[in-house]
């Protein structure tokens, strides 16, 4: 009671139902964990915690895309619940990521499977409507697919947020008092989880082909982040000694690092288009007249 207000439960449930439809259709990025963190943080009144949890889970699932309709770990719902309970029950964000976000996200794979299975029912109704030439019925039964999809996210999120509060609060207070090692361990795990995301992503990328760029990306960033980090520490220390020292040092801008990579990618793109342009010119000189002939034959037939 009092952990999460009813209106918060309803808004977050509605968001969970919307996000899966967004993911299936327009993909505006609203279905991504960072947005889930931002929105859940906004609803719960602590955007920063939401962003930290959303950002961490985003990194954890960085390489997990949907391939060929396979169910993927639902980091969005995981973020919503972890953020709601972290703010509502006073959990540390890193602990919430590992203790709540990840288990919830992987449990939700099951409801995703149920939704994809349930839609088979409507597929068969569409078949029947085609036979009956009921055009409105075809469209209606196609659109009914929205029900399994939204309920697969809405029901678990609603139940957990509405009734999970007391349980989570008891667990959190017990953990903080008696199981400090577990709490610290989960915080470490939360900090470590992005590494899984990076490794999964590498599995999908042609690492061997682009290995030099993996090294470049790592070294450039490792060196700069050390330099930036140390200057930052130096600045804070000096500011602590001398009040006249007011210069603030920004942290390492990730966008700048990414832009260096973008330049590499652009060079690669130019190289390979030039290569393929040469090939295309060679090919087209042979194939152009044969294609024209082909077109004429078709024209004659009709």
């Amino acid at each position: 009671m009092g952990l999460i207000a009813i209106w918060q439960v309803i808004v977050l449930t509605c968001y969970s139902m919307y996000q899966i439809m967004d993911e299936l259709t327009i993909q505006s990025s609203l279905s991504q964990p960072v947005w889930a963190g931002l929105i859940a943080g906004l609803v719960m009144g602590d955007i920063k915690t939401g962003l930290i949890i959303g950002g961490s889970l985003q990194l954890t699932v960085l390489g997990v895309g949907t391939f060929g309709g396979a169910s993927k770990i639902d980091a969005n719902s995981g973020t919503v619940m972890a953020t709601a309970f972290a703010i509502g029950a006073g959990m540390k964000p890193e602990v919430a990521v590992a203790a709540l976000g990840v288990p919830v996200a992987s449990l939700m794979i099951q409801t995703d499977i149920v939704a994809r299975f349930a839609n088979t029912f409507f597929q068969h109704r569409v078949d029947k409507m085609i036979d009956q030439e009921n055009y409105k019925g075809i469209e209606r039964n196609y659109l009914y697919g929205v029900l399994p999809w939204t309920l697969s996210r809405g029901i678990p999120v609603f139940l957990a947020l509405a009734f999970g509060g007391p349980f989570v609060r008891t667990a959190v207070s017990y953990m903080n008092e008696n199981l400090a090692w577990l709490s610290n361990g989960l915080a470490t795990a939360g900090a470590l989880l992005p590494a899984v995301g990076f490794a999964i992503l590498l599995r999908y990328l042609p690492v061997k082909k682009h290995f030099p760029y993996l090294i470049l990306g790592f070294i450039i960033t490792a060196l700069f982040s050390t330099v930036y980090g140390n200057i930052g520490i130096l600045g804070t220390t000096v500011a602590g000694i001398d009040t006249k020292f007011t210069t603030k040092f920004a942290s390492l801008p990730m966008l700048a690092i990414a832009l260096i990579g973008f330049a590499f990618a652009l060079l690669e793109y130019k190289r390979s288009t030039e290569k393929s342009a040469v090939v295309a010119v060679e090919k087209s000189s042979e194939s152009e007249d044969s294609e024209e002939q082909d077109g004429e034959i078709h024209g004659d037939e009709i």
Partner: peptide, 9 residues
């Protein structure tokens, strides 16, 4: 690949 390297760091 480059970005993953940067992120790992």
């Amino acid at each position: 690949v480059y970005v993953v390297g940067a992120l790992a760091a």
